[in-house]
């Protein structure tokens, strides 16, 4: 089908004088004066997936603020995505509470570490976190990796460590998770963060 660009036009203050409004006897002056009293406010609507559970409900996030003017965008409302085939606009009570989750002062924003036996959470850097996790993983894998079973068949298993990924992951991050985890020989991993 042919779509002609002629259908598209800008509505300009300068054009109003020859618009249907003016040509049928209504002075556009008041409308123009009114326009000068208004300013545009920019808002956003963003499609996303609820992070809670493996049902993967679609959500719409409403934001306020102009990124271009270096103002921090604020999330003002979250609701179920009416077009999403899984939830068709509905949300469970946890999903309905997502706005509080986003704005919670207790929200985890950086890695923290609590040593065994300690009651204190200590903030650490991402580098420290990654180094510690990989060190412990390697230590455990070196100690417990099973390359052959009792019949001498190669199995390459690592069953002493498990992996919990995110429920809101896309297909692609699911694929990458699978590649990383399985290639280490790990058998237990899940994307269920609800429980």
């Amino acid at each position: 089908m042919q779509v002609t660009r002629r259908q598209f036009f800008k509505i300009c203050a300068s054009g109003l004088g020859s618009s249907s409004l003016a040509m049928l006897g209504f002075a556009p002056g008041e409308a123009l004066a009114e326009t000068r009293n208004f300013k545009l406010a920019r808002t956003t609507e963003t499609r996303n997936t609820c992070p809670y559970c493996s049902v993967g409900c679609g959500i719409l996030i409403y934001g306020l603020g102009d990124k271009a003017k270096n103002v921090h965008t604020k999330v003002i409302h979250i609701e179920g995505d009416p077009d999403h085939p899984v939830n068709r606009g509905t949300l469970c009570p946890k999903g309905v509470g997502l706005l509080d989750f986003v704005q919670s002062p207790n929200r985890l924003k950086h890695p923290e570490y609590r040593a065994p036996g300690s009651k204190e959470w200590k903030r650490i850097s991402w580098d420290e976190a990654f180094t510690r996790i990989s060190k412990l993983m390697k230590e455990d894998r070196d100690k417990n990796f099973i390359d052959k079973n009792k019949d001498g068949v190669t199995v390459n298993r690592w069953v002493s460590t498990g992996f919990l990924a995110a429920s809101a992951s896309s297909n692609e991050s699911g694929y990458i998770t699978h590649k990383v985890v399985r290639s280490l020989g790990m058998l237990s991993f899940d994307n269920q963060a609800r429980v």
Partner: peptide, 16 residues
């Protein structure tokens, strides 16, 4: 630019 017409309103001569 407007992506659709309102047939009750001709926007005047300043078109794109």
């Amino acid at each position: 630019v407007r992506g659709g017409l309102n047939l009750f309103f001709h926007p005047g001569s300043a078109q794109v």
